[in-house]
Design a binder for these strands. Sequence first.
RNA 1: GCCCCCGUAGCCCAAUCGGCAGAGGCAGCCGACUUAAAAUCGGCCCAGUGCGGGUUCGAGCCCCGCCGGGGGCACCA
Length: 850
Amino acid sequence: MDVSCAFRHRARRYNSGVTSEAAETHDTDRYDHARLEERWLPHWRRTQPFRSGREGDTRPTKYVLDMFPYPSGDLHMGHAEAYALGDVISRYWVQRGYNVLHPIGWDSFGLPAENAAIKRGVDPAGWTEDNIAQQRASMERYACSFDWDRVLATHRPEFYRWNQWIFTRMFERGLAYRKPSLVNWCPNDQTVLANEQVVQGLCERCDTPVTKKRLTQWYFKITDYADQLLDDMDELDWTDRVKAMQRNWIGRSTGADVKFVIEGRDEPIDIYTTRPDTLYGATFMVVAADSELAAELAEGADAATQEAFEAYAEKVKASSEIDRLSTEREKTGVFLQRYAVNPVNGERLPIWASDYVLADYGHGAIMAVPAHDQRDLEFATAMGLPVQVVLDCRDEDGNPLPDPVESGEATTGDGVLVNSGPLDGLAKAEAIAAIVERLAADGVGEATTNYRLRDWLISRQRYWGTPIPIVHCDACGEVPVPDDQLPVTLPDAEGLDLKPKGQSPLAAATDWVTTTCPRCGAAAKRDTDTMDTFVDSSWYFLRYLSVGKTDGPFEPLDAKKWAPVDQYVGGITHAILHLLYARFFTKALRDMGLVDFDEPFLALLNQGMVQMDGSAMSKSRGNLVRLSEQLDEFGVDAVRLTMAFAGPPEDDIDWADVSPGASSKFLARAWRLARDVASEPGVDPATGDLELRKATHKTLAETAELIESFRFNVAVARVMELVNVTRKAIDSGPGAADPAVREAVEAVAVLLSLYAPYCAEDMWALLGNEDVALGNWPEVDPALLVEDTVTCIVQVKGKVRDRLEVSPSIGEDELKELALATDGVKRALGDAGIRTVIVRAPKLVNVVPA
RNA sequence: GCCCCCGUAGCCCAAUCGGCAGAGGCAGCCGACUUAAAAUCGGCCCAGUGCGGGUUCGAGCCCCGCCGGGGGCACCA
């Protein structure tokens, strides 16, 4: 798409009601965002100021990365915020003299393209490429400081070839494997979903209630890295919020495995518990109704029991995730007419099957201690099972808590063990240590760790994704496609029915599916599933480093030079999924010897969302604000500045609360400064007005700190202050010809280049310079940061009673004397004596009366 | 239920070692310029920091307990 076309369009819009002649003429003596955009965009297209990694570039490197967009339509307000903030960081480091890698690409596989293709009967590839072209044009107009030589899109074979390559490496190491299991199934999209894509029991994409289906699917063994994924977070410069989300998701718990002998079964079974100290309180056992163990135990029971179990299991399977998630639901289950033996006291425990025990956590079986676990208590109450108290729990005042059976509340806290044989009298921690030791000695238990995190299900029964590079051979089994036969490209969508039908559309591409086994040469079939698109985004940040490379996913030397990412910028919506997967990939690639670092993203900034009138924007809600219209009306610079100025970047922006019009006015005010400067380029600022010089240098020094701690809104406020004092200097101070005015305005231009590149570039040109964006951060003169005098607050009993203008280097004793002599102190003190005087030279004295 | 974040003028937000509650902006009001309006320039108004305790010479900031808002996890044994 031609961006200049959009400009003509706007010019017409903008000047409607004015003569056509006026529409063609721009007033060069006024700030006119349309004129500035028309002037500078073509210039930047030519000069490509943000190309990184040029031959002979000796600047220190930095890698600043924005999360790449999905190409479904044009950019929206959310993109505008994210890229505005990422650009502030990236442009700042360029100004500070760094060789900044700031790439962009497209996360272009996935359901939206496929759904659009189905709906409109178009080719997903064509639809995707069209959207990419549109977004790219919008990004260029938006003046994103991207390196346009490093663009990638994940749907192109030159990218997804390396998905396949990494997959086969994972497969070789046992990190990619296939297993049958009950998986999340979206009946609408007709595809499997990862746990992470099920939100409140609904499909993340289409909000359809998710059901369960038993399927054989591909997994990545992310659970192998659970401990590292938890522990390595300590080193990351991420918010506590995101770290907490990741911690919750991984969900590490420590406890013990305990072996229970099952009557009539050769092998004992393991259960997992976090409270082995309550083992003497176990009164029954529960196995997950949808587990193989439950089916096996039922098989060993009488026919009536078996029938009851099968009916129950069927019901459980049919229930939706939503039902399952309801916490108020009644406990249900079937007694399997089987018994387990408690290893510590030989008691016979009836075994029940229920859906409140999960098949894929721990061992899918638990010991039930109803006195001290709320869920077990509810189940015992519903089924009339016995309750045995083994903990003496007390409230804060030392009174015993009511009996769980009477109160309906299990006592789950700490307590002293009772009715527990050798454990009696021990506190929780001691009891756990003692019982684990004894179980281990007897060979019937050991301390273990469990995780909420499950292995990552990556199979998708859809067309628009990376084909899984596996050939199924009757003789050889699962055979990875050899490297020299990669990529396995997608068959043409032409003639394929992409509609969801529970099986991958690739299965219908007979010619494509039919192949020979790479190992034995016999007739064989390709795997017809495609990979979860999160695979693409798990390593794309490495591909940017070596986009053209044809003999590997990335060049190790490039990775050494640039990676890991110094600063990542993106929405909090990816706080769990994408970040966790990318961290896992990095660790796996490290173990393959491909990278030499542990974490992909050292620092992370999560910008908030852009809302309108208190809620997320949507067409149906009628509160949609169109980015293109905002850009037409207020200009790129004003919209970008508004995003930076609205508040802390992590906070949501309500577009109704901010004012792009005010941003535009401010930019005009700044721009006029450059127009008004009356001294020549290169004039020595040292001879200029001292007060203005101090203001300029102070602003520069403070801004550096503010940007580096992401306080962009405050940094913008500082530029506004500098603009205000410079205006005053011109109008009612030393005047437009003073060299300090030029110094101040040049600083304004450099500072504004972070938020408002068009305005800054034009100011820079008005000042007789070129290329404002590149390494122009002025050196701060420390001498100009020192104040001649500071205001010392004089307090009596913490209340301000007087002020003193003193030297910054004043001594404590001298300051104390001056303070005690002030009228304010004398008045406030009256006849009272002095108990003590707190002196914090040079800023504060606090007199404490007796 | 567990965990994380946040409550400061009418509104968005500053106050980063515990030290003058206000930097910047929006809205409002007044004035200058103008025949007038726009634009521009200048000025003014506005809270004692959600509530209750505590520590301290001194608390928006630290501690405890509430209230309110947002978010994550959740039958994970």
